[in-house]
């Protein structure tokens, strides 16, 4: 679902296969998307794809887009340090976090955006630790503070609206991240909802999502564009190359 949203955004923008280098991570989000793009692609070790992408960003021509489809464990757990530094440096990449509400490819353990109270294989009594989903601890607020220039949240059911957001994310020449929770009927839903019926988990997520500004008491995911400072800060690779060029020519900065 999320993958379709991203591919549709790429298509709508008129980008070609050659315009994009696609990176993926480990887990459901990574395994489901690696090698599905017909152009060049890579898969990073768990959580490190942002560091690889920063090195690659230096080497690629600026017009090439880097799109990363990653999971919530990858981005907000093991890779958060690297993610924050990618945001800090404003490296041009579009990170799509396909959030299936925990570590599902290992059977269904809680993650850092798993709704509080959820029962998972590693939180059989309910997830009681604070997660990265509320107030200033919201992962999007952390990334805003770290300097990201485009941040948004959508649920997979947002369809055409999410496509429009992803288009804007790709157009930002800097660090963009779109957080997109999507349903996992196999593990998350079977434990938390006691049902593998896809309709139930779709409904469960949809009922807990609301557009920003229209949140209800039980809203978990406030959807829409959280932060749009597109093209407001120097892009990482451009800054590095301009700096290097100046030092090379003049011997100083």
């Amino acid at each position: 679902m999320n993958h379709k949203i991203v591919v549709q955004a790429v298509k709508d923008l008129g980008l070609e296969v050659a315009d994009i280098v696609w990176g993926t991570s480990i887990g459901c989000a990574g395994r489901q998307t690696f090698g599905t793009w017909k152009g060049d692609g890579f898969a990073g070790t768990h959580g490190r794809v942002y560091a690889i992408a920063r090195g690659l960003r230096i080497a690629l021509p600026p017009e090439k887009k880097i799109i990363l489809t990653v999971g919530d464990g990858d981005a907000f757990g093991i890779g958060l340090n690297h993610l924050i530094h990618a945001a800090r440096s404003n490296a041009d990449m579009t990170v799509i976090v396909n959030d299936n509400l925990g570590y599902q490819s290992t059977g269904g353990q809680y993650g850092w955006t798993t709704p509080q109270g959820s029962k998972t294989d590693s939180s059989p009594y309910g997830m009681f630790e604070p997660n990265l989903m509320s107030g200033v601890m919201d992962v999007l607020e952390i990334l805003r503070g770290a300097g990201a220039t485009f941040l948004a949240r959508h649920v997979a059911m947002d369809g055409a609206w999410a496509v429009e957001t992803v288009k804007q994310a790709i157009l930002n020449r800097g660090f963009s991240l779109v957080h997109m929770p999507y349903p996992c009927p196999t593990n998350f839903a079977s434990r938390e909802l006691g049902s593998r019926n896809q309709v139930n988990i779709y409904r469960w997520i949809k009922e807990r999502a609301a557009p920003l500004g229209q949140e209800k008491k039980d809203t978990i995911w406030a959807t829409g564009i959280w932060h749009d400072a597109s093209n407001s800060r120097p892009e990482f690779a451009q800054l590095v190359h301009e700096t290097v060029e100046k030092i090379r020519r003049t011997g100083t900065l």
Binding site: F42, A51, I52, A53, R54, G55, L56, I58, A59, H241
Partner: peptide, 21 residues
Amino acid sequence: VYLQAEDECAAMHMCIGAALG
């Protein structure tokens, strides 16, 4: 290009990215 990384793990991954480019 010289880049200072957030840790050694990132440093070598950045090198991988640059080499892939």
